[in-house]
């Protein structure tokens, strides 16, 4: 079989311009993990159901496993690594997960963090029901979701009280 054609994919990831030559069939989630070595983004079901691979594409949450990297060359991507503060301390949603025990095994957590980060930009004062709805597209097999919902509300409180978040 002929060698597979490679395409130059250039992304701004967490503020840094990064590029690699990859086959057209490389999924964005695999591009981040394999080619850019950013393994914070997790790959669960690989068909768009579980939400573990959720990243922000030009600020909006999308499934990394349902997008080909080549198709979004030139875009800005934010991963869970990009949501830490510039001094390396936890970003506000990450801190809320830490404080509220919003994770156990942590596999699903990167997808939750990115989804909730984008959600709180749109709705900074969610009700518990809205928080529940916001995470409805992400699966967690450990927590039973209760502490994740608490984490959403805790993050909103932290933002309100002026806790530092660089993103």
């Amino acid at each position: 079989m002929n060698p597979e054609e490679l395409f130059l994919v250039e992304l701004t990831v967490n503020g840094n311009p990064l590029s690699a030559r990859v086959p057209a069939r490389r999924l964005l989630s695999d591009f981040l993990r394999h080619d850019l070595r950013l393994t914070g983004t997790h790959v669960g079901c690989e068909h768009g159901v579980c939400g573990a691979c959720t990243v922000l594409l030009d600020g909006k949450p999308v499934r990394g496993c349902l997008i080909f990297a080549v198709s979004v060359s030139g875009s800005e991507v934010t991963t869970v690594e990009g949501l830490v503060n510039n001094d390396g301390s936890l970003g506000v949603v990450q801190r809320a997960f830490h404080e509220s025990h919003g994770l156990q095994c942590g596999f699903c957590t990167p997808g939750f963090i990115t989804t909730i980060h984008a959600f709180l930009k749109e709705n900074p004062h969610p009700t518990e029901e809205e928080a529940r709805e916001a995470i409805a597209g992400n699966l967690c097999r450990c927590t039973g979701y209760q502490n994740i919902i608490k984490s959403v509300l805790r993050a909103a409180d932290l933002i309100d009280s002026g806790v530092r978040d660089d993103h």
Binding site: G51, L57, P61, V62, R63, L66, A134, A136, G137
Partner: peptide, 9 residues
């Protein structure tokens, strides 16, 4: 239709 994250794309 699906979830907001799917609707974004």
């Amino acid at each position: 239709v699906a979830h907001p994250v799917i609707r974004n794309r």
